[in-house]
Nucleic acid binder design. Structure first.
Lengths: 240, 240
DNA sequence: TTATGACCATTCGGACGATTCTGGTCATCA
DNA sequence: TGATGACCAGAATCGTCCGAATGGTCATAA
């Protein structure tokens, strides 16, 4: 049982433990002691990596957000359609859907977040990060990747509500009656003909650039705002 | 200040009072005494019309549901497009949106419903009533009023989630940045090209018939299930 | 006959203190 | 030098109590 765990590995282990416990028992019911035990370290060790319990949670959210973003990019790349408004939306939803913790954060699930919800002032920003901002829509309309006869503000409202509904959705109708893939297909088809683009557009390279841009901006904001301090600077993570 | 209030008028006054107080203070915080006072009757009088506080609330919900349904039909009729999937959806949403109480019921707002949420077992049925059921979608697909290449179960999930999101929506993005009309237009346009119908279809008469059918069925269910008993049988309300 | 409001049994909700638990620290140890 | 876990102050929780308020009834009055 001798684990030569490096510093970074230990930090990840702590985050893993926190993730599992919090998604299951909720933030309030999960004690720092629990996390330490699950991660196989002493309680004090946690405070060598994170300033406070809240800081630990912020770091966890940031990590999961990055994962979700990467996962959604991977899904988009794997789809022959490539980067379009509807694949962005579809796989953005799917990636989020697959990550219980982040979904809980996004829909402000009190059962998981507990009293932490009140401290989530920076969350509007966060929800933008997940690739739905006014900026995004206007850029895409300019490029002809979203039909231009839709009022951008209203469209933002509609799409945001749509995504929100999809993420809380199974509270109303159980998703179990279908599958993530089937629903994803419907979303794609509906949005493809619903908001465009109409024909093939060569501008999609530009769209991809803008998307990556917004994504990077979002993650940067999250990193700056999320963790207040950490003892070690994570060096790698080169890819975007 | 002498009001010759008839029996039915008095009942409506009680419901009006309940509606105003409950939407403002919530079900738990609103006492029967409050309702009586606001309606200008004695507390005992309320129990001549309704078996219990819960029964009064059921009746109120039923009344508001009827109003919302009628309002949505009126809006559809006023639109030159007439009966289509997207006008149904659009104005169904708008009518609901305009009725704070029913919206609270639909999204199960604890702040308004208080402990009553637990007694809302029959509400899945209710949510169907508001013109979104699997039946509805399949009929419309058969008639060519909804494109047939979308999996009906998944589409039901998507549309239900969509509507849900739109109704809770302003929690995420404030609706105040746009208007109900603008958002409504976007919804119409998006769904028109998103789920159809593609060309003009002559079957829309049939669609209207089915819709009225489902609507009537829903209201009947609500009436049967909602109020347990009431001292007076409301005679009028002939239109559907 | 019909509406009323005083009345009752029950529940609700705040106060209070005892007790446990939790986040965070720090002297100690490997 | 870095990890540990005993330790502390403050917060949350539980149990108990009691007065106020609430839903519902019914004898009385209009």
């Amino acid at each position: 049982m001798s684990e030569p765990a490096t510093n970074a590995e230990r930090e990840q282990a702590i985050l893993d433990a926190a993730s599992a416990l919090i998604t299951h028992y909720g933030y309030d019911k999960t004690t720092v002691e629990d996390i330490a035990q699950q991660a196989g370290v002493a309680k004090g060790t946690i405070y060598l990596h994170f300033r406070s319990k809240d800081d630990l949670f912020s770091a966890l959210i940031a990590r999961e957000a990055q994962r979700v973003a990467e996962r959604s990019f991977a899904l988009i790349d794997a789809d022959p359609e490539g980067v379009t408004v509807y694949t962005i939306f579809r796989y953005g939803w799917q990636a989020m859907q697959e990550n219980p913790l982040l979904r809980a954060v996004y829909v402000r699930d009190r059962r998981v977040l507990g009293d932490y919800v009140r401290r989530l002032a920076s969350l509007p920003q966060f929800s933008q990060m997940v690739s739905l901002s006014g900026e995004f829509i206007q850029h895409f309309q300019r490029l002809g990747l979203i039909r231009a006869d839709l009022d951008p503000d209203a469209l933002l409202y509609v799409l945001t509500s749509f995504r929100y509904g999809l993420l809380v959705g199974d509270a109303v109708v159980p998703l179990s009656r279908t599958s993530v893939e089937t629903v994803g297909e419907v979303i794609s088809k509906l949005l493809a003909s619903g908001i465009g683009p109409q024909g093939d557009s060569a501008k999609s390279e530009e769209g991809l650039r803008i998307l990556r841009d917004l994504y990077a901006k979002g993650l940067e904001f999250m990193r700056a705002n999320g963790r207040q301090a950490s003892k070690d600077s994570n060096p790698g993570s080169g890819t975007i």
